Simulated scan of single mutants.
Amino acid sequence: MAVTTQQESLNLEGARIAIAAAEAKAQSMGLGMNIAVVDASTHLLHFSRMPGAKITSISIALDKAFTAAGHRVGTHTYKEAVWPGGVAYGLGNTNGGRFTTFGGGLPIVNARGEVVGGIGASTGTPAQDQEVVQAGKDAIEKWNRSFAQFLHLALIA
């Protein structure tokens, strides 16, 4: 018999706040970006493709958000570990090739430090993508002080 638990997860309103802040950051950098926000279960909540964003970066942004929420750490943390001989070599080939190991994906956490979603961006360099998602993460976590309005309880089987 499956056990069902409740988990807080980001909602659409929260995702929109994160996307708006990430878009503003990308615009200030003169970049068009693909930006994705997923919930705690790695399901897409909101996506933005800004003018000038690379078509080939759409799936990369989605996969960065997926990786950040699902593995509960920023995608940039794998940089050294995934090279040949590294402790996580080959990790990028897992999850149907969706596991992303370069910068531009961050988990979104609630006031208790629990992962409630993830944000990913792609079109720039990994460092530029990282700046963009940091702005989105900061915007929603700023609201984290009264975060309940941007979360809902999800049943996880």
Rank of each mutant, 00 (worst) to 15 (best):
A139S: 09
D129R: 05
L153C: 12
I140Y: 10
A139M: 07
F150E: 04
G120C: 02
A135K: 00
P126D: 02
N144K: 13
N144H: 11
K137L: 11
W143R: 10
L151H: 07
L151I: 00
R145I: 11
E141V: 11
A121G: 01
F147Y: 11
S146I: 13
V133S: 03
R145Q: 09
K142W: 15
W143N: 04
A121M: 05
W143M: 07
Q149I: 00
I140S: 11
Q134K: 14
V132G: 09
F150L: 12
F150T: 05
I140M: 10
A127E: 14
W143L: 12
Q134L: 13
A121S: 06
T123R: 02
G136F: 03
A127D: 15
W143P: 00
W143T: 06
A148D: 03
T125W: 01
D129H: 04
D129Q: 00
A148L: 08
D138I: 00
P126V: 03
F147L: 10
D129S: 03
K142I: 14
F147R: 06
Q149L: 04
E141K: 11
Q128T: 04
E131D: 10
S122P: 00
D129Y: 06
H152K: 15
A121H: 02
P126S: 09
F147K: 00
T125S: 02
H152T: 15
L151D: 09
A139E: 03
V132R: 12
E131M: 06
L151K: 00
Q130W: 01
T123Q: 04
A121Q: 01
G136C: 04
F147Q: 01
A127G: 09
Q130R: 07
A148K: 12
P126M: 03
L153I: 14
V132P: 10
Q149K: 11
N144F: 05
F147H: 04
H152A: 11
K142S: 15
Q134S: 13
